[in-house]
């Protein structure tokens, strides 16, 4: 639902960096979205073209790296794979899970000319 705002931030961050580099235009932007970040990659991709209009990013390509959710059980110490519907440890059943990876929401790099 807030993907439009998130996508605007991607374009803002990339454009600001591109201007600083003196770029004429941005060819591609690479972002990272964790599976537990609460942001739907499809929706970001959907909003991207519209958000780029009239900016240095117009016509650029969006590359999305999805990051798998990973966590650790505070009770038995097991490392487990997490998705948004995992609430308890697959080994011991405990609900005390610590998230280690998967909440990423970052602009990684871009290609400019």
């Amino acid at each position: 639902m807030h993907e439009l705002g998130i996508t605007r931030s991607i374009v803002e961050i990339a454009e600001e960096n591109a201007r600083r580099q003196g770029a004429q235009r941005v060819l591609s932007v690479t972002i990272e979205i964790g599976d537990l970040a609460g942001v739907i990659p499809d929706s970001v991709a959907f909003c991207y073209e519209v958000c780029c209009e009239g900016t240095l990013l117009a016509g650029s390509e969006l590359l999305i790296r999805q990051v798998k959710g990973k966590g650790r059980c505070r009770d038995c110490g097991a490392d487990i794979d997490l998705d948004t519907t995992t609430f308890n440890c697959s080994t011991c059943g405990s609900y005390a899970l610590e998230r280690l990876q998967g909440e990423e929401l970052r602009v990684i790099e871009m290609e400019i000319e």
């Binding site: 960096n17 060819l27 390509e61 969006l62 602009v107 990684i108 790099e109 290609e111």
Partner: peptide, 16 residues
């Protein structure tokens, strides 16, 4: 989702 670049001749800039 694309996670590979198409052929561009641009310069890559880290943002992080």
């Amino acid at each position: 989702h694309h996670d590979h670049k198409h052929d561009h001749d641009g310069k890559t800039v880290k943002i992080e």
